[in-house]
Amino acid sequence: MALKGYIRENGQVGIRNKLLILPSVLCSSSTSAQIADALPNVVSIANQAGCAQVGDDLTQTERTLMGFGLNPNVGGVLIVGLGCEGVNPLGLANKVAESKKLVDYLVIQQVGGTTNTIEKGIEEANKMVNAIDEPKRNVDLSDICLGIVIDNSIEESKLIVLSKVIEVLSDSIGVVIIPKRHQSYFSDAKELVYGKTVTEKGIYYTASELGNVALMTGMVASGAQTIIHFTEDGDPAGSSISPVIKCSVNEDIFEIFWEHIDLDISAPLAQNNESLISSQLLSVVTNTINGIDTKSEMLELNDFAIHRILPTF
């Protein structure tokens, strides 16, 4: 099946074409959400960081926010700042602009409050939505960065099969990012700093013992256009930027959690049939690339959490 995506000016490939309203600090998250809610195909994130952070923690927040703006699924970015936060909205805008994306920014304290910012933001966002509209073109699986999230409760015997499936996927897909706790299954996996953009193809491991939302956030910031989540527990976490493909690894969770599940692999997993699982997953990934909404997209799930290194003041 031919794959279609959005080829950006810097050569990256998006499988969605979102305008991101990016709050640089928690104080501008509500304003950003109200701008995004007013227009179709415009998304925002609930950023709870960006204030009262220092050192490595502030650097990680800046890197993650920049990564969201740089994600290939984002066609344009409107940054909304407050004006007194640690993350500089203009500096963030300049960094994202280096990717040749359409970028602008608003600062609530400069514009004159929340109402003015929302009105101006909607006006600017509407222009940007029209400006980033573009046709899809032929792309390849090697252009894709795939995040992999695996529930901690999945037993060892299933992990062995899933690791073989991931190896098969990595033969076709350009970049695969896995959680650090599973790196032992992949001898050639390279370490990836949390939220840092991937620039070379291969298998990478990132972060440590994080919750699924923080792990997904880091993967999206690193450039993952889509994420496969192997779930034993039924975690509904999703992303407004990168479609999350939910795969149940036991039949019980599929029956309970069916509205969230894109693919139930419990039967072939019990039979150690990695070949069948791999082909089924490639089919779902292909459909997702070509614009078929995942269940998390249908449910408009939008979760965001930056991994904290240090306590916030």
Rank of each mutant, 00 (worst) to 15 (best):
E9C: 00
N10E: 07
G14R: 03
N17L: 05
L22V: 01
S24T: 10
Q34C: 08
I35S: 05
D37G: 04
L39T: 01
L39F: 03
N41Y: 08
V43I: 13
S44G: 02
I45E: 02
L58D: 06
T59V: 08
L65S: 02
G67M: 05
F68E: 01
G69I: 05
G69A: 07
L70M: 06
L70R: 04
N73A: 08
L78P: 05
L78A: 05
L82M: 15
L82T: 04
C84K: 09
V87H: 06
N88H: 04
P89N: 07
P89L: 04
K100M: 08
D104C: 10
L106W: 14
V107M: 13
G113A: 14
T117P: 02
E124Q: 11
E124N: 06
K136G: 13
K136H: 05
N138Y: 03
D140E: 13
G147A: 11
I148Y: 09
I154V: 03
V161W: 09
V161P: 03
S163L: 08
K164R: 15
I166G: 06
I177C: 12
P179L: 11
H182I: 11
D188A: 09
D188P: 00
E191K: 09
E191F: 08
E191P: 01
K196I: 00
Y204G: 10
L210D: 07
G211F: 03
G211M: 03
V213M: 06
M219T: 07
M219F: 12
A221C: 06
A221P: 04
S222P: 05
S222T: 05
Q225K: 15
H229T: 02
E232V: 00
E232K: 09
D233Y: 04
G234D: 10
P236L: 13
A237F: 04
I241E: 06
I245R: 08
N250M: 01
N250E: 03
E255N: 07
I256Y: 11
W258P: 00
I261S: 01
D262N: 13
D262T: 01
L263N: 00
P268E: 04
Q271D: 15
I277K: 09
L281I: 12
S283N: 15
S283D: 14
V285Y: 09
V285L: 14
N302W: 06
I306R: 04
R308V: 00
